[in-house]
C-alpha cells in the first residue's frame, strides 16, 4: 500500500465478476465486488483490450479504479475529501449506492423539506390572521418575491 497526502493506493486480487460489455455495468459490478460506495462517472471512464479505468465519487471520497482483465485485479487510488467537503455535500445529497445508512439521510431531508414548506405556509397564515398593520410586511414580501421572479425571467432570457 502506498500513501500520499490524502490518497492511498490499494489493490484487490481475484475479483469474480460477470464481465459485461457495458462499461457502466462492469464498473458497478467492480464497485459492488470491492464493497465501495459511490457513483461511477461515465465521463471519466475508458476501456481498452487490457483494462477498464474509471473514476468514482461519493461525498467523502473519490476513487480512480483500474481493473485489469487478464488477472482480475483492481487497483484503487482512494482520495479523501475532508470533513468540510462532506459537510457541504450533504446539502441535496440523498441515497448513495451501497450506502444503506444514507437512506436515513434521504428520509431526513424529505421530512425537513416538508416541515420547511409547512412552516412557510403556517407562518404566512398566522401573519395574515394577526391584527397588526401589514402594509410594510406586504411591501417587503411583494418586492422580494416579485423581484426574485423578475430576476429569474431576466436571467433566463438575457443572462
Amino acid at each position: 500500500m502506498q500513501q500520499q497526502r490524502d490518497s492511498i493506493l490499494w489493490q484487490r486480487q481475484s475479483l469474480t465478476l460477470n464481465e459485461s460489455k457495458d462499461d457502466i455495468k462492469l464498473a458497478e459490478a467492480i464497485r459492488d465486488s470491492l464493497a465501495l460506495m459511490g457513483w461511477p462517472l461515465p465521463w471519466e471512464m475508458s476501456r481498452d483490450s487490457t483494462a477498464l479505468r474509471f473514476a468514482m465519487e461519493q461525498p467523502a471520497k473519490r476513487y480512480f479504479i483500474t481493473y485489469t482483465f487478464d488477472n482480475n485485479v483492481a487497483s484503487v487510488v482512494e482520495t479523501r475529501k475532508g470533513f468540510w467537503r462532506v459537510f457541504n455535500s450533504l446539502h441535496g445529497s440523498g441515497y448513495v449506492p451501497n450506502g444503506s445508512f444514507t437512506t436515513l439521510w434521504q428520509g431526513y431531508t424529505w421530512v425537513i423539506v416538508i416541515v420547511g414548506v409547512l412552516s412557510i405556509i403556517t407562518g404566512l397564515y398566522i401573519w395574515i390572521k394577526s391584527q397588526e398593520d401589514k402594509r410594510s410586511g406586504l411591501a417587503i414580501l411583494t418586492i422580494c418575491a416579485g423581484g426574485a421572479v423578475i430576476w429569474m425571467i431576466k436571467l433566463y432570457l438575457m443572462g
Binding site: 461519493q58 471520497k61 462532506v86 450533504l90 448513495v96 436515513l104 431526513y108
Partner: peptide
C-alpha cells in the same frame, strides 16, 4: 446525531 453519523459513515 444523524448529521454527524452520516458524515462519519461516509468518511
Amino acid at each position: 446525531i444523524l448529521t454527524f453519523s452520516t458524515i462519519f459513515y461516509l468518511m
